[in-house]
Design a protein around this nucleic acid. Structure first.
Length: 428
RNA sequence: GCCGCCGUAGCUCAGCCUGGUUGGAGCGGCGGGCUGUUAACCCGUAGGUCCCGGGUUCAAAUCCCGGCGGCGGCGCCA
């Protein structure tokens, strides 16, 4: 029977005989006594080796693995207030000198990406991974609580969702297919069976983006709802974000603190999010002296400047037709505008959700596909969905890695993912 | 696609602008010291094709040209 480091710190009593297993996180050597910070999946606790055991412990390099038996001591000088005085080393594996040192870790260097398979052992990565775990769990919780069915969509696809977006070609027997960039079209098909559906899956974008919020492979949480409109998307998406943030605040305070996250800022994330019409955003930016006109897309700088006005995420809605993909439904009251909505995260993190109402009329859809310079033949089955009992419907996609990046307060999306894939990096 | 930056020890970096004896520091390694550390500390020690090629010069890590490798940001999007 083994105890975790967390169990030692939380519930073990003075004098308890315990067994622990883990890795050497830090080692502090003296003549006849050695302190080792033992790391496991739950945390870190101090071990004390003395006498002959100190001589054995001296051989352990950083990240060596070890199983020990010892006696719990309440000790104010120990990190966490308790430590384990080792009485037996039951097993050990003396690792080679660990190649990551303190200065490399502080520098947040490229080297850490080269040795990412080892760096994921670090406290920072550990904290992020645990928060990420909670985020993914909360996504499933929220959708299931709200009557959505989870579905699975193909990764190999034969046509683009976004007209212009770049796809990764894949050799597929004697022809070329592509890696999916969104499950949206499949989700739209599935609402005719299940009405409210969601999926959490990777999406792939071959755009040569070199920014701190782009990956070529990212995790996409997408939902689609029959009998729904743009305002339903706003309600569900803000409910989702708030539920996720609440869960992280409830379960992961220690991890947020390790990452140095300002928890106060996350506490402010409560519904409803401000609803900002695209036109208002343009006005705000003009007042701030930016040269933006109705119809132009908001770049990263504009987004950042706009979000200085807000402390929570916002719904930015009603984008002009020309800056949104063809499938967005135009506003019948104002046809040059679409019933589209993005969620922008505060603190400069930008767009985390994109969505809106879809065109349900087949003729309107065909007409818009043509107007966008695309070929309706490429969207054959997608148009077909509208021919057999079409319904108003809407949906959205959440960039889960961007959400994790924001919640953790990270500088780069790469650090929101254990093994990031970007324009150049595909290893480890 | 556009703009900018970098390449010096296993790792992080200083030195380069203003060329000048044997190219430095911290961490890590190795050896030693130390009765309580919190990224332990102290002493010693090993470790270098200064990315590659060419040029200028009495002299190049340093200046110039070319190549290779890498990074950051924007655009696009989640």
């Amino acid at each position: 029977m083994f105890q975790t480091t967390r169990e030692i710190l939380q519930s073990a009593d003075e004098g308890d005989l315990v067994r622990l297993r883990g890795w050497v996180y830090r080692k502090r050597e003296f003549r006849d006594k050695i302190f080792i910070m033992l790391r496991d999946s739950e945390g870190v606790v101090q071990l004390v080796f003395s006498g002959q055991l100190a001589e054995d412990a001296r051989k352990l390099n950083i990240e060596s693995s070890i199983i020990v038996e010892g006696i719990v001591k309440v000790e104010p000088r120990a990190p966490g207030g308790k430590e384990v005085h080792v009485t037996r080393i039951l097993w050990s594996y003396i690792g080679e000198p660990f190649p990551i040192n303190v200065s490399a870790a502080q520098a947040d260097s490229e080297y850490l990406l080269d040795v990412r398979h080892l760096w994921i052992r670090s406290r920072k990565m550990w904290a992020m991974l645990r928060i990420r775990h909670t985020v993914f769990n909360a996504i499933h919780e929220y959708f299931r609580m709200n009557g959505f069915y989870e579905v699975q969509c193909p990764i190999f696809v034969s046509a683009a969702v976004e007209g212009g977006a770049t796809l990764f070609p894949v050799k597929y027997f004697d022809r070329t297919v592509y890696l999916t960039q969104s499950a949206q079209f499949y989700l739209e098909a599935l609402i005719f069976s299940l009405e409210k559906v969601y999926t959490v899956a990777p999406s792939f974008r071959a755009e040569p983006s070199r920014t701190r919020r782009h990956l070529t492979e990212f995790w996409h949480a997408e939902a689609e709802m029959a009998w729904s409109n743009m305002y339903d998307v706003m309600k569900i998406s803000e409910g989702l974000i708030c539920h996720i943030v609440r869960r992280v605040l409830d379960e992961r305070l220690e991890e947020l603190s390790i990452l140095g996250r300002d928890v106060e800022k996350l506490e402010k994330v409560r519904p409803p999010f401000p609803r900002v019409l695209y036109d208002e955003a343009i006005e705000i930016l003009k007042k701030k002296g930016l040269n933006v006109e109705w119809g132009s897309d908001l770049g990263a700088d504009e987004e950042r400047i706009l979000m200085q006005e807000f402390e929570t995420p916002i719904h930015l809605y009603g984008f002009p037709e020309q800056i949104k993909a063809f499938y967005h439904k135009n506003d019948p009251q104002d046809p040059k505008r679409t019933l589209s909505v993005d969620v922008l995260a505060p603190e400069g993190y930008g767009e985390i959700i994109g969505g809106g109402e879809r065109i349900e009329d087949p003729n309107q859809l065909i007409e818009k596909i043509k107007r966008f310079g695309l070929d309706p033949k490429d969207y054959d089955w997608y148009i077909d969905l509208r021919r057999y009992g079409s319904v108003p419907h809407a949906g959205f996609g959440l960039g889960v890695d961007r959400l994790v990046m924001w919640i953790c307060g990270l500088d780069h999306i790469r650090d929101a993912v254990p093994f990031p894939r970007d324009i150049r990096r595909v290893a480890p």
